[in-house]
């Protein structure tokens, strides 16, 4: 039973980690929390569904197309919406919650019922030890790995990536050395949308897609980000995996009624004990 719970938790944890990255990217740059993140994940899944139903794309190109569209959408929304919410973090929170409600209910108009997602990642059942699971789980884990490596490479080796990091570290200094801060912020939103949408497509074939699928995942991904360190990318990944595995183990061995509690208790305890999270660094927080 342990194998089953562990591997299942790992896959869910990867999803928390990738969606959580969206929180982290925006937080590092703006010290703001985008509560529409979970609903972007949901919208990404539906975007994947709409594309996959019309064009028969293999898995990898599908992920790429959805990521690209979501990236563009993130940049456009930054320009039209988010930019007007930088006033303070309360305004940003409520505004982004409003955006989330619009996204969720907008999708609901077109898809009032849960819909099965085409099995783009295959539907074979794989057996490892005593654990059995769909091929899709492997895709989730591997894609997360690849995504993290790509992000790391981008932040370390590309000019744009370094610019983003500079803005995240200190926007004012970055501006004085000639970084286009506005562009960097727009790119950040693009990236955060892209990763969340890709996570949506990864999870789609494993479960169904429904307009409310982003609610809980969003909150847990957020807990994962805070647990690992909301300004740290490796921290968020670690946080996602730990929460995914822990809650599955708790659900299997202790009580499935309180399975959901794990993430939020971890969130609360971590904030009080160490608000910067496991791997996060202390940053001056603008109050």
């Amino acid at each position: 039973m342990f194998d089953q719970l562990f591997i299942g938790g790992l896959a869910t944890g990867c999803v928390y980690a990738v969606v959580g990255l969206g929180f982290t990217l925006v937080y590092r740059t703006l010290r703001m929390v985008n509560f529409a993140q979970g609903h972007v994940f949901m919208a990404g899944a539906f975007l994947g569904l709409v594309i996959a139903e019309r064009v028969h794309l293999p898995a990898l190109p599908l992920l790429f197309v959805v990521g690209a569209v979501a990236f563009a959408l993130g940049m456009v929304l930054e320009r039209l919406v988010f930019r007007r919410l930088y006033h303070n973090h309360e305004v940003f929170i409520v505004g982004s919650i409003g955006l989330g409600i619009v996204l969720m209910n907008g999708v609901r108009v077109f898809f009032p019922e849960p819909v099965p997602f085409p099995k783009v990642f295959g539907s074979e059942v794989v057996q490892i030890g005593a654990a059995r699971f769909q091929e899709g789980y492997l895709w989730v884990v591997l894609s997360t790995l690849v995504l993290v490596v790509l992000l790391h490479a981008m932040f370390t080796y590309t000019r744009t990536g370094r610019a983003l990091r500079a803005v995240a570290a200190d926007a004012e200094i970055a501006a004085t050395v000639g970084v286009d801060v506005k562009r960097a912020i727009a790119l950040t939103f693009g990236l955060s949308f892209a990763v969340a949408a890709i996570a949506g497509v990864l999870i789609g074939p494993l479960y169904f897609v429904s307009f409310d699928m982003g609610d809980m995942v969003g909150l847990k991904a957020f807990s994962a980000a805070v647990f690992g360190g909301i300004n740290s990318i490796p921290g968020t990944i670690l946080g996602g995996l730990v929460i995914g595995v822990l809650e599955n183990l708790a659900g299997g061995y202790i009580s499935s009624a309180y399975k959901d509690l794990v993430a939020f208790v971890i969130l609360l305890v971590m904030l009080i004990w160490r608000p910067t999270g496991l791997l996060g660094r202390e940053t001056p927080v603008k109050v």
């Binding site: 010290r31 703001m32 929390v33 973090h89 309360e90 929170i93 909150l219 957020f222 807990s223 805070v226 909301i230 009624a257 309180y258 959901d260 509690l261 939020f264 208790v265 969130l267 609360l268 904030l271 009080i272 608000p275 927080v285 109050v287």
Partner: peptide, 30 residues
């Protein structure tokens, strides 16, 4: 639940209250 968290910087406090909200709701439910 929130006494320790309210001393945190503003945004961290918001995060903590989300945890509190969910914990209370889950306990009422279960």
């Amino acid at each position: 639940l929130g006494g320790a968290a309210v001393r945190l910087a503003g945004l961290y406090f918001v995060m903590a209250t989300i945890g509190i909200q969910q914990i209370v709701w889950l306990v009422l439910m279960n």
